[in-house]
């Protein structure tokens, strides 16, 4: 068997499209912060795999940062357990605007195998305003890159006074309104892996 080459995402074209979208909207940089809101750790390992030499997310101009204060986008995994709700809210509130939230995996979208538990919510949408859903249990690294692409493609260009994202087509809701669930069409999107496009 020949080993898959290290430029895997580019083969899909997703990497290059993502890079262009970042160039356009954020002047090349996208800072991502990971938030485990009660996962089984599977989704989190796939996010970690984005940083290995196969996927090498940084080469696409995307960096995973240590503080939410440096982040444009929050990659959230897990169901939103009660024990984490305060910390999750505070992490989101610490981010500068505009900010995006990507729900990663079945748990973050609707509770996954843990739906209906006493211990937490059925998805992060009950607590945070979600922009993009990336299905999977866990989603593959390619799907995560695809999800980032969708998120960035939907972010209005940063142009000073125009600022913010209000009125941008296809947005599920205003930024910074916690507790708003994603609209129905997001949850039942076509089978292309990333609904709501």
């Amino acid at each position: 068997m020949t080993a898959p080459g290290p430029i895997h995402p580019d083969e899909l074209g997703a990497g290059r499209r993502l890079r262009r979208a970042i160039d356009r909207t954020l002047g090349r940089s996208l800072h991502v912060r990971h938030l485990d809101a009660g996962s089984c750790n599977g989704c989190d390992w796939e996010i970690a795999a984005l940083l290995n030499p196969y996927h090498d997310l940084q080469r696409l101009g995307i960096d995973v940062v240590a503080s939410p204060r440096h982040a444009d986008l929050l990659l959230v995994t897990g169901t939103m357990t009660r024990n984490l709700e305060d910390a999750a809210r505070r992490t989101y509130e610490a981010m500068p605007e505009p900010r995006l939230v990507v729900a990663v995996g079945a748990c973050a979208i609707a509770g996954g195998v843990f739906a209906g538990s006493y211990a937490g919510r059925d998805g992060i949408g009950e607590v945070l305003p979600v922009d993009v859903l990336v299905p999977g249990c866990p989603p593959r690294p390619e799907a995560l890159i695809h999800g980032l692409l969708v998120a960035v493609g939907r972010m209005a260009p940063w142009r000073g006074s125009e600022g913010g994202r209000a009125g941008h087509p296809g947005r599920p809701g205003e930024a910074g309104r916690p507790g708003e669930a994603p609209p129905a069409e997001d949850a039942s999107g076509p089978g292309d892996g990333v609904p709501g496009r």
């Binding site: 996962s39 357990t81 024990n83 195998v113 843990f114 538990s117 006493y118 211990a119």
Partner: peptide
């Protein structure tokens, strides 16, 4: 710990 307690056993 137990921040990611998901109530698996009851489920």
């Amino acid at each position: 710990l137990f921040f990611v307690h998901r109530g698996l056993e009851k489920l």
